[in-house]
Amino acid sequence: MSQYQPPDYYLLDELIGEEYRLIRDSVRQWVNRALLPIIEDYAQRAEFPRQLLPGMAELGLFGPTIPQEHGGGGLDYLAYGLMMQELERGDSGIRSTASVQGSLVMYPIYTYGSEEQKAIYLPRLASGALMGCFGLTEPNHGSDPAGMLTHFDDAGDHVILNGSKMWISNAPFADIAIVWAKNPDGQVQGLIVERGMEGFSTPETHNKWSLRASATGELVFDQVRVPKTNILPGITGMRGPLSCLNQARYGIAWGALGAAMDCYDTAVRYAKERQQFGRPIGSFQLQQKKLAEMLTEITKGQLLVWRLALLKNEDRATPAQISMAKRNSVATALQVAREARQVLGAMGITGDYPIMRHMMNLESVVTYEGTHDIHLLITGMDITGFNAFG
């Protein structure tokens, strides 16, 4: 039975309303019941718990903001954020699976796909009958995705796709991949590549210290024949994949705070129970300082993402605002995890508590969907109007 007591120092529950609390609490209960009892074991074994996928689909965690007529949940961005917060409170890797499915696979099909593509793929993705992944990052092109080498050539009623992608969540088990590649004109376009197409393989990435309960792999394309009907017709250029990343970054901004909240709650309970020098360690000034600073930063982050959700619902959230929130939430979560680990002393490194797993996971979250430094430069460019990337 989870003893989790979520921090809500500024009474944000009063701002979000009962309907949203019900959505959040349904995910919280599922995390407590289905995820927490197994996640430490799967992380230790570096294995993805695939048996969770049907439950995640049933909860509406795949594409919650996609309209209901396409199989999604038809929810708004505040609901989506709260769902990702609770999911990452369980584990960043499990939240990554949901983020990829909704923000990086279903979103581009819904936004840029043909009506036929929407009808074929979206309902099955929402139900978990199909799982997807998103191919943008390459071995030599991470923060500079426009330099990608993956490309396709015209071959009549199909195209020939060549290249590779790496650090791809869900790749080892994905049924389809949304792949961004350069067309014959050198413009970036998205394609739906299906498992089973000759020349398409997804070797798994091993020996990770982070996101150990998440399946990560490569996408390799060796003369893959892709029907032209699988090309996303609604967008060309980098605006396509970047708009998908904005969706994912928004979910991370909420999700990372969930990991921070779990670390903080664990540290509070431990500080009240652990005795040293004849008294609970929570009665000592330095431990109280750690806990007070953790709660302060979490509260600031909660207010930031709550306001961002309202702006997103009004279609007024800018990419730079989303970057600020993603960067702040992950930095906060990492700091909270490190301080919480110290509160627990040596016990903090064991799998008896979630803190070290969260900390290792967050070392990936701070890098993917735009690194900590790249998001800082996005904010800097928004402030000054000067591009400092190149």
Results as ranks from 00 to 15, higher is better:
Gln68Glu: 12
Ser169Ala: 14
Leu15Trp: 09
Met381Asn: 14
Gly93Thr: 14
Phe152Glu: 02
Lys228Ile: 01
Leu22Thr: 15
Gln287Leu: 01
Asn230Lys: 10
Ser143Cys: 05
Ala320Tyr: 13
Gly258Trp: 09
Met83Ile: 11
Arg357Lys: 11
Ile168Arg: 02
Thr371Lys: 02
Tyr368Trp: 15
Leu75Tyr: 12
Leu35Ser: 11
Ala171Glu: 09
Gln29Ile: 12
Pro203Leu: 01
Arg195Asn: 09
Val100Ile: 15
Tyr80Trp: 04
Gly351Ala: 11
Leu22Met: 12
Gly370Val: 04
Arg195Gly: 08
Leu161Cys: 10
Leu36Lys: 13
Asp153Gly: 09
Lys118Thr: 11
Ala57Ile: 01
Ile349Cys: 07
Trp209His: 11
Gly278Ser: 13
Leu308Pro: 06
Val268His: 01
Gly128His: 11
Ala309Cys: 03
Cys263Arg: 07
Glu363Pro: 06
Ile160Cys: 06
Glu116Gly: 03
Gly385Thr: 04
Ile374Asn: 08
Ala337Tyr: 00
Asn170Ser: 06
Thr350His: 13
Asn32Lys: 14
Arg225Tyr: 15
Arg341Pro: 02
Gln247Phe: 04
Gly102Arg: 00
Val366Gln: 15
Pro354Cys: 05
Pro54Arg: 02
Val27Pro: 12
Glu40Phe: 02
Tyr270Pro: 14
Glu19Phe: 00
Gly81Asn: 08
Ala213Cys: 02
Leu87Ser: 04
Glu88Asn: 11
Thr371Tyr: 08
Cys244Gly: 08
Arg95Leu: 07
Gln302His: 08
Leu304Asp: 05
Ser323Val: 00
Leu232Val: 02
Gln302Gly: 02
Asn183Leu: 09
Ser201Arg: 01
Leu257Ile: 07
His141Thr: 04
Phe221Cys: 06
Gln187Gly: 10
Asn328Ala: 13
Arg33Asp: 04
Glu297Asp: 15
Asp262Ala: 10
Val305Cys: 00
Ile374Glu: 12
Phe277Ala: 14
Thr266Ile: 08
Met56Asp: 01
Gly186Asp: 07
Gly90Asn: 05
Gln335Phe: 13
Gly90Ile: 05
Arg338Ile: 14
Glu86Phe: 09
Gln302Ala: 04
Gly255Phe: 03
Ile281Pro: 09
Gly71Phe: 03
Arg95Gln: 14
Asp8Cys: 05
Leu82Thr: 02
Glu69Asn: 13
Gly278Asn: 14
His206Trp: 07
Ala292Gly: 01
Ile16Arg: 11
Tyr10Asp: 15
Arg45His: 12
Gly380Ser: 10
Gly128Arg: 15
Lys165Leu: 11
Pro227Ser: 05
Pro64His: 02
Arg327Cys: 11
Ala174Ser: 12
Tyr10Ser: 15
Arg124Gln: 14
Arg33Leu: 01
Ile374Tyr: 15
Leu22Ile: 15
Glu58Gly: 05
Lys165His: 14
Glu40Val: 03
His158Thr: 00
Arg225Ala: 13
Asp315Met: 05
